[in-house]
Design a binder for these strands. Structure first.
Length: 280
DNA sequence: ATGGTTGAATGTCAA
């Protein structure tokens, strides 16, 4: 089974490109962020026509998260318990959506950007990551064998090599110790980042700003991740960052990140077929 | 080409 995460930066501006990518890449489950639309604006049919079930949560033109799956989509959760809110009155934004797909609880997460270190959004970002850690820890305490994937745009570059030049990030968000500590806390709660071992840096990124020719100049950031629970991490057989998808007219500013899993219902059925053939 | 973004409530914010 292949699962993926991608900040698409508007599902309406990029629908055809997303559909082409799903098919080309043989994606079974996609966690999508920044759909930038309400539920009633989501181009559901584009994906159901390709055999995917769709769950979307969008409240406005900002944020918006979705899960697309062709291996079943059950138990949809809008937001997670304890997810911090924003605004007045304070309310959760459309930044988290979970569903069980092919036996794995897949979360599409869009961590707040943080903007500037002295902006209230920065403290909001840290609260949000802490709440995610607490929720993840709780789920694993309840079921240590659970297959959980925390997929998304974390808006944190955990290591110095995850940005093109640390000197250019002096005083900036995404690389501060509190943000990195918050990310590490989620990992230490039991969620291994499974992409990096198969796509090591330096110079390997998932996001390049549209401005200043960042992509051709290779000035990117690694901020999109798949964090897997122990049982799920044990099934990972590969991962890749689809840098090609960042190229050309109409690209998102993020690249898709894909993870391949061994086992699960499909592989068991294939193994049974193989055994049957061998015996024939 | 010596510069250079894109997408969303069309006006200005967000990333």
């Amino acid at each position: 089974m292949r699962i993926a995460t991608w900040n698409v930066n508007s599902v309406r501006a990029r629908g055809e490109r997303i559909a082409a990518w799903l098919q080309r890449s043989d994606v079974d489950v996609a966690a999508v962020q920044e759909t930038k639309c309400r539920d009633d604006q989501f181009p559901t049919q584009l994906f159901t026509d390709l055999g995917y079930e769709v769950a979307h949560h969008g409240l406005s033109q900002w944020n918006g998260v979705a899960v697309l799956s062709r291996v079943g989509l059950e138990d949809v959760q809008v937001g997670f318990p304890g997810q911090p809110g924003w605004g007045d009155p304070e309310a959760p934004e459309a930044r988290a959506l979970g569903a069980v797909c092919g036996g794995v609880r897949v979360w599409s997460l869009y961590v707040p950007n943080g903007r500037e270190i002295d902006d209230p959004h920065y403290a909001y970002k840290l609260r949000w990551l802490e709440a995610l850690r607490a929720y993840g820890a709780e789920r694993l305490a309840e079921d240590p064998q659970a297959g959980i994937a925390l997929c998304g745009d974390f808006n944190v570059a955990p290591q110095d090599d995850d940005v093109w030049d640390m000197a250019e990030f002096e005083g900036s968000t995404h690389v501060t110790k509190p943000e990195r500590d918050a990310f590490t806390s989620v990992v230490e709660a039991g969620f291994t980042e499974v992409v990096r071992p198969y796509a090591p840096g330096p110079g390997v990124y998932t996001y390049w700003d549209y401005k200043q020719l960042s992509f051709p100049k290779r000035k990117g950031m690694r901020i999109d991740f798949v964090l897997a629970s122990p049982a799920l991490a044990a099934r990972v057989s590969g991962a890749l960052i689809d840098r090609e998808e960042r190229k050309g007219k109409g690209a998102s500013d993020h690249a898709p990140v894909m993870v391949d899993l061994d086992g699960g219902a499909e592989d068991e059925s294939a193994a049974a077929d193989s055994a049957g053939l061998a015996g024939a």
